[in-house]
């Protein structure tokens, strides 16, 4: 396989195979950052991969008081699912169980209607929790952008949620893998990559801390298991697994998975992540996971992300 070099590190001339997914940005605000983060972390739990989870979700970034509709600290969360239809249920359940229950929180739409491909009636569904005592809040009728909210009485006070949340066609499964000489350098490179990625708007890294140490392959030798460990990239079996793709000198590999609200954001995030990772001593090679182009709609070439950059 051809290689290019970035900061002296080999970058394979390959592509990340990504998929069409629908994404919804949810803005959570609370009395302070602590509670906004708490709700966001609860809401994005167990949402790493649609292989076993109902959605893929992550925290996009914190929002300052100037950036939120109610002037309180906030946290932006993005939730992804295969389709518009399959996005609704996880949103209703997660907001209902993890945000509505969290003290002082409120939920607002994070994708304005003019930028959205669809508006999902999440708040409208959750309003029934008010058991008839919910109150519709109207804003802007006939003079500003029309907005609707629901005020739901709860024991602590009142939960406020916007009636419709915007969703758009996004990209899931952007990725690259970092191959290093040992666990420490690989982890450090991956951590730096995630830090850089989170400076890009519109993307999340749904795995723990943004990192996936156990990349998976489709299928397994067991008929009951539809996905299993990514054997070609497991250093522990590199000399015993016949089709191992682990280069000599590499003893640890971590995958960074990126979902974004559009392809351009995912590309940019991949580039920022790779550039940060190759700064760490001990990183030997950067590659990406794909399925030979057979499954995903998007083939995001590393060389294109990096703009052919080599040094």
């Amino acid at each position: 396989m051809e290689m290019m070099r970035v900061n002296g590190v080999e970058v394979e001339d390959t592509f990340a195979e990504a998929f069409r997914m629908w994404g919804c940005r949810v803005i959570i605000t609370a009395k302070n950052q602590k509670w906004a983060d708490t709700a966001a972390m609860e809401m994005t739990g167990f949402a790493t991969s649609v292989i076993m989870c109902d959605c893929e979700a992550g925290i996009e970034r914190r929002l300052s008081e100037d950036e939120t509709p109610d002037g309180r600290p906030g946290t932006a969360v993005i939730v992804f699912a295969h389709s518009k239809k399959t996005l609704i249920e996880p949103l209703v359940r997660r907001i209902g169980q993890c945000v509505l229950t969290c003290p002082t929180t409120a939920v607002y739409n994070g994708i304005p209607e003019e930028e959205a491909d669809a508006m999902l009636d999440i708040g409208k569904r959750l309003r029934f929790f008010g058991d008839g005592y919910q109150v519709k809040m109207r804003l802007g009728d006939g003079w500003l952008r029309r907005r609707r909210f629901w005020r739901i009485p709860v024991m602590e006070g009142e939960f406020l949620i916007e009636e419709m949340l915007g969703a758009k066609k996004g990209v899931g499964g952007g990725n690259f893998i970092i191959m290093g000489v040992d666990e420490d350098s690989t982890l450090e490179a991956a951590e730096r990559a995630v830090e850089a990625i989170h400076r890009v708007p519109g993307v999340i890294t749904p795995f723990p801390g943004g990192l996936c140490r156990s990349g998976s392959k489709v299928g397994s030798r067991y008929p009951f298991l539809r996905a299993s460990t990514n054997t070609p990239f497991c250093p522990a079996i590199k000399h015993t697994y016949p089709e191992s793709q682990v280069p000599e000198g590499v003893n640890s590999i971590i995958e960074v998975v990126i979902n974004g609200l559009d392809e351009a954001s995912v590309r940019r995030a991949m580039a920022e992540g790779i550039r940060a990772a190759v700064e760490v001593e001990g990183v030997r090679r950067i590659s990406a996971v794909n399925f030979g182009g057979k499954l995903g709609k998007y083939q995001i070439y590393l060389r294109d992300c990096l703009g052919g950059e080599a040094s």
């Binding site: 605000t29 509709p69 109610d70 804003l139 006070g157």
Partner: peptide, 12 residues
Amino acid sequence: YTPTFMRIYLKT
């Protein structure tokens, strides 16, 4: 109480 929705109106 101190309703959150009031902040939206007052900001508007």
